[in-house]
Design a binder for these strands. Structure first.
Length: 155
DNA sequence: GCCAACGTTGGC
DNA sequence: GCCAACGTTGGC
C-alpha cells in the first residue's frame, strides 16, 4: 500500500550539482544532507513523489526543473566514509544518523522560475512555503499540491 | 563580501 | 537545561 503522491522542494547549488548534472547522470543519491528536518522530510518520501529542483546561491536563484523520488530513504554511505566531507564520526551502522533518497531527472522547465518572481506569489503560496518564508534555509522541504500547481502554472 | 537568520555546540 | 559563541546558508 502506498499513500498519495506528495511533492517536495530540493535545493542545490548549481556550481556543485545542477539540473544539467542531474540530466546527465539520470539518477543521483542525494547525499550530504546534515540537517535533521531535511533528513526527516526525506524519510517521509515515497517512490514517485514529485520534486521541484531549485538552484540556490547563484546569479539567478530559481526553480529550474522537475525530478522524481526514485527510492525510499536509506542510510547515506558518506556518513561512514572518513575521507568524505560528510563523514560523521558519531554515526553507526547499527543506528545510522543520516538518510538519503535517490532522485531521478524528469525534465527541465520550459523556463526557469526565478525566486524574484516566486516572491510575487507569496500570498497565494501561503505561509508554509520554504522559498517565501523569511530566513528559511531548509534544503529539503514539503510542497502542497496547490503550491505545486501554482508554481508550474508560471512556467 | 556583507549580513540576517537559524542550527549546533559546549561551558556552566 | 540555559545561552553565548560559532558556523552555515543563501539572498543581495
Amino acid at each position: 500500500m502506498s499513500s498519495r503522491k506528495r511533492y517536495w522542494l530540493m535545493k542545490s547549488e548549481p556550481d556543485a550539482f545542477s539540473i544539467d548534472d542531474l540530466q546527465k547522470v539520470g539518477v543521483e543519491p542525494w547525499n550530504g544532507v546534515r540537517n535533521y528536518q531535511a533528513r526527516n522530510h526525506m524519510r517521509q518520501m515515497q517512490v514517485g513523489d514529485g520534486v521541484l529542483f531549485y538552484h540556490s546561491s547563484c546569479a539567478i536563484p530559481a526553480i529550474v526543473g522537475i525530478a522524481k523520488v526514485a527510492s525510499v530513504a536509506y542510510p547515506d554511505p558518506t556518513q561512514f566514509d572518513p575521507k568524505s566531507d560528510y563523514f560523521d564520526a558519531k554515526s553507526t551502522h547499527e543506528e545510522p544518523r543520516w538518510s538519503l533518497v535517490d532522485v531521478a531527472f524528469e525534465r527541465k522547465l520550459k523556463r526557469a522560475i526565478p525566486l524574484e518572481e516566486i516572491k510575487q506569489h507569496a500570498d497565494a503560496l501561503g505561509e508554509g512555503f520554504a522559498l517565501t518564508q523569511r530566513g528559511s534555509r531548509l534544503s529539503v522541504s514539503p510542497v502542497s499540491a496547490a503550491q505545486w500547481k501554482l508554481l508550474l502554472s508560471l512556467e
